[in-house]
């Protein structure tokens, strides 16, 4: 029972964190940069492992942040040099990811760093990996890591809410007002990177993308206000995590995969039935609007 609670707590926290950060990715139309970062984080993890020879500690987060920023920077460089934006993303993430896979298979084959684990996560083992503080059992390490990242992300967004908002909707205005647009961009990318690496224990680096993009996109269809979108996005993520977990438990399949699928199902519902945007109700509204005119 406690085991189940921990899993639910961890996956809900991951989903909420991703939902909050992802909102800005969707609004800035850089969702695929998150995809790129979630792949290249592997290289950061391997790099940190090669330096420290362990899979623990803050070095993982630092490695992930460095590689995440490098990914963003390389994409920017190629973009400025005239490579189409989506191709720039494709070139950068596939090459850095490949280097990561090669390093794993050359130097880290014997440790608990198999690529499958990094990609798909293994949340069912997370509750067993506990830590102690002064001899008191504190629960799973993954929980505390993701909680720390959640607090960091939330604090940064609350602190710089206005800046994030203006740079997302009107970067030109933001620049004119003297807000450091580039700095905010890289700050956001750092947040995405550390969120991705903190989450990979739970859902795996690749399925982080699902939680970073799908719940915010769902919220995007349901509301027109940024603050509401962030909350709806986080709640949608948590709902996906909870339903995903129970579905996975029922069918005895991958938890991470089920969470992603559940997020997809919630998106589909919003896509079809959103009061203002859903393709079904929108059509009815149009008919309603057209009816008096034609009569």
């Amino acid at each position: 029972m406690l085991y189940e609670l921990w899993i639910l707590a961890i996956s809900s926290l991951v989903a909420a964190t991703c939902g909050i950060v992802g909102t800005f990715l969707v609004l800035r139309r850089i969702a695929m940069v998150a995809d790129a970062i979630s792949h290249t984080v592997l290289l950061g993890i391997v790099g940190a492992f090669l330096v420290s020879q362990t899979l623990e500690g803050p070095l993982m987060l630092i490695g992930a942040a460095v590689v995440g920023l490098a990914t963003t920077y390389f994409i920017q460089v190629l973009d400025n040099a005239g490579v189409p934006a989506d191709a720039a993303i494709g070139v950068v993430f596939t090459s850095l990811f490949s280097v990561g896979v090669i390093l794993v298979s050359l130097y880290a084959r014997d440790v608990h760093l198999d690529v499958d684990h990094v990609l798909m996560g293994d949340i069912s083992f997370a509750p067993f990996h506990t830590i102690e503080w002064n001899g008191i059992p504190m629960g799973p390490q993954a929980f505390w890591v993701i909680l720390a990242v959640f607090i960091i992300d939330l604090a940064l967004i609350l602190l710089l809410y206005k800046e994030f908002k203006i740079t997302s909707f009107d970067p030109a205005l933001a620049a004119a007002l003297g807000i450091p647009v580039t700095l905010i961009h890289y700050l956001l990318m750092t947040m995405v990177s550390i969120t991705a690496v903190a989450s990979f224990d739970a859902v795996g680096a690749i399925l982080v993308v699902a939680l970073l993009i799908v719940p915010p996109a769902t919220a995007y269809l349901l509301t027109e206000k940024l603050s509401r979108m962030i909350i709806v996005s986080a709640l949608t993520g948590v709902a996906a995590a909870v339903t995903g977990y129970y579905t996975a438990k029922y069918f005895n399949v991958s938890i991470a995969g089920c969470i992603a699928s559940a997020a997809g199902a919630l998106f589909l519902i919003a896509f079809l039935f959103s009061p203002s945007q859903g393709i079904l109700l929108r059509g009815r509204q149009r008919k309603k609007a057209a009816a008096p005119a034609s009569s």
């Binding site: 969707v26 690749i206 993009i213 799908v214 992603a260 699928s261 998106f267």
Partner: peptide, 28 residues
């Protein structure tokens, strides 16, 4: 084309959800 969601987010949604579902089937 049917919603206000942009191309990049649409790609991200489809990619991750399909892949996630694939992982479900794979573990099955």
């Amino acid at each position: 084309s049917q919603s206000k969601i942009k191309q990049d987010a649409a790609i991200g949604i489809v990619l991750s959800v399909f892949f996630g579902f694939g992982i479900v089937l794979l573990t099955m």
